Simulated scan of single mutants.
Amino acid sequence: MRTTVTAAALGVAALATAAAPSAAVPAGAAPPGQGARCGPGELCLWAEPDYTGSRTAHELTELTTEACTALPEGSSAQALVNRTARPVTTYQSAECEETGDFETYPGRGGGTWAPASPYRVRAFKIWES
């Protein structure tokens, strides 16, 4: 019975999405209500998942590309938005060591949105291309 109810609920959700395609968020686009929180050309990091907690924003004008930028000691990020036109790699290590986890988020027009990093981000690099 539970499977039937779940399948029926998913079917209704799929029909609702198909009937109203403008309500769907395209891949890589900003989640509803988040666009104003990270401006074009910025890399924004949040201390907690789902774009909550304290937020920091970084622009290319204040950074050296391809250089490791550590977050302040004792701080980390768990959600991010890359609205730069360049790829950004985040690191679990504060020294951008590749012995810990790291992930690269592409730079593209509308931005790359990651509501939950698989690790605590302690540093990042913005690449030339």
Rank of each mutant, 00 (worst) to 15 (best):
P106Q: 15
T52I: 00
A77F: 11
A94D: 14
L63N: 06
G53E: 07
L10I: 08
G33F: 03
G35C: 00
T112R: 02
T89F: 10
E66G: 04
R2C: 04
T99L: 07
A8H: 11
V81C: 08
A94V: 02
P87M: 04
T56I: 10
A18L: 14
G74H: 01
C44S: 10
A77V: 11
N82R: 09
P40C: 07
P87Y: 03
L71Y: 09
A47T: 04
L80W: 06
A114T: 08
T89N: 07
V88R: 04
A29C: 01
T6W: 10
E62W: 01
A29R: 01
G74T: 01
A30R: 06
R37A: 14
L60F: 04
T17K: 00
V121I: 15
P118Y: 06
A114R: 00
G33H: 05
S22M: 05
P32S: 07
G41F: 03
T99M: 08
H58Y: 14
A29T: 03
P72W: 05
T4K: 13
V25W: 01
I126Y: 15
P32Q: 00
A77Q: 14
S76Y: 15
R83H: 13
V88Y: 07
L45V: 07
G33I: 04
S93W: 12
L10E: 01
A67W: 03
V88F: 10
R2P: 00
V88N: 06
E62Y: 03
A123E: 09
A19R: 12
L43D: 07
E97N: 14
T3D: 12
S129D: 14
P49R: 06
L63A: 06
P118R: 11
C68L: 11
G100C: 02
A27K: 03
T56P: 04
C96E: 13
A36D: 12
C44T: 09
E48Q: 14
T17N: 02
A94G: 14
V12F: 09
A24S: 13
T17S: 13
A23T: 06
S75E: 14
L60D: 05
V5C: 03
T69K: 12
A29Q: 02
A24Y: 05
T99Y: 10
A94H: 12
R86E: 07
C68R: 09
L80Y: 08
A30V: 04
A13M: 13
T65K: 11
V12D: 01
L15F: 12
R120E: 15
G100F: 15
D50W: 08
R120I: 04
A7E: 08
S22Y: 02
R2W: 07
A9F: 06
T90P: 02
E42T: 13
T17M: 09
G39W: 03
A13R: 12
S93A: 10
Q78R: 15
T99R: 11
A114M: 10
H58M: 11
S54K: 05
T69M: 12
S22I: 03
P21M: 05
